[in-house]
């Protein structure tokens, strides 16, 4: 790897990252898989590949929220909470009122949180970091109140979510049936829809977008609501995959979702990046996790290492791509 040779090769690599972000990312992914294969001969298999995809998909979907918001220079740190709430409501309400109403309520709550985020950021001009952390805290509080006062008769995970979350067809995870159309839609929208272009425009220069007639608040409101919906749907998928509803189900995905977008080449300052890189970023993080698990490090050490690796890889990639 030429990463650490000289400053000039570093900056050349950085230029490559900006111009053709997918190539070096896929290179890094292949390299990681090779290392994994050397450390654990025989681990690579069709089953392993399917499993890695299955684990990476919810992460990649939450990272879509980060990618879209980061394109405008924002961030959404409430996605883990929204996914958790959506999953918990579905699992606990399904036995009481049936599956379709339960999912409707779960997704409605995701929309509400997204709208509140959007309103605070678009209209009150609260910084996205503060706003989304704040709504996440409040929403978690509501979830605790719900858990305390709504006597759950039990937990039911809808069958189709189990099928989607854990099932396989032809050796590939069924969740691809959700994810592939989703990814195609996001990648199409970011280049070929007016809304997607405006995300880049606002991130590149909000004042210029305004002067061009863009009412920035409309974009922000729509964007954070959309982000809430994506997180809510991800929660349903994650419920089917983990097969249990807990009060902190998807919270551990918050930081990795940001890291996946950053590693994937989306600028935290807005205006640059895209979802294609984010998907590879999510795969890289998933392979890393597998590697740490297989190295049989105890849970505490694994978390420390994972956090350190996310921080250093992210810092390195920001250094490479943000220099200009």
């Amino acid at each position: 790897m030429t990463l650490t040779d000289t400053p000039s090769s570093l900056s050349r690599f950085g230029r490559l990252m900006v111009d053709r972000p997918l190539l070096p990312l896929i290179g890094l992914l292949v390299l990681l898989i090779a290392v994994l294969a050397i450390l654990n001969p025989g681990v690579l298999s069709m089953f392993w590949a399917g499993n890695t995809l299955k684990i990476a998909i919810p992460l990649a979907m939450l990272a879509a929220c980060q990618t879209l918001t980061m394109l405008t220079g924002g961030i959404d740190l409430s996605v883990g909470t929204v996914a958790t709430i959506s999953a918990y409501l579905t699992a606990t309400l399904a036995p009481l009122i049936g599956v379709p109403p339960a999912i409707a309520i779960a997704l409605a709550s995701a929309v509400v949180i997204g709208l509140v985020n959007g309103f605070g950021i678009a209209v009150c001009r609260v910084h996205p970091l503060i706003m989304t952390l704040g709504t996440a805290l409040i929403a978690t509080g509501f979830l605790l109140v719900y858990q305390r006062y709504v006597i759950a008769t039990g937990v039911q995970i809808p069958d189709f979510l189990l099928w989607l979350g854990t099932g396989r067809s032809f050796g590939l995870p069924n969740s691809l049936a959700l994810f592939i159309p989703f990814a195609v839609l996001i990648i199409w929208a970011q280049r070929r829809s007016g809304f997607g272009r405006l995300l880049y425009a606002i991130g590149a220069n909000e004042a210029a977008a305004r002067l061009s007639g863009v009412r920035v608040w409309q974009v922000h409101l729509t964007l954070y609501t959309l982000s809430g919906v994506i997180a809510g749907v991800t929660g349903l998928l994650y419920l089917g995959q983990i097969k249990t509803a807990s009060l902190s189900l998807a919270l551990p995905l918050d930081l990795p979702s940001v890291a996946a977008a950053v590693i994937g080449g989306t600028s935290i300052f807005g205006g640059r990046g895209g979802y294609g890189g984010t998907i590879v970023g999510a795969l890289i993080l998933t392979v890393l996790t597998t590697m740490l698990t297989l190295m049989q490090i105890p849970e505490g050490g694994r978390r420390i290492l994972f956090g350190l690796i996310i921080l250093s890889v992210t810092a390195l990639f920001i250094r490479l791509t943000e220099r200009n």
């Binding site: 070929r192 829809s193 405006l198 590149a204 220069n205 210029a208 061009s212 007639g213 863009v214 205006g271």
Partner: peptide
């Protein structure tokens, strides 16, 4: 510097006003 999206392409810069209104947020007629 107040008018341009410096990191974006010429085409995207020129097209911004065409997309600004909500009814133009959907598919771009490329």
């Amino acid at each position: 510097a107040h008018a341009l999206l410096m990191s974006r392409s010429v085409r995207e810069n020129i097209a911004v006003p065409l997309l600004a209104r909500v009814r133009n947020w959907g598919a771009i007629r490329m």
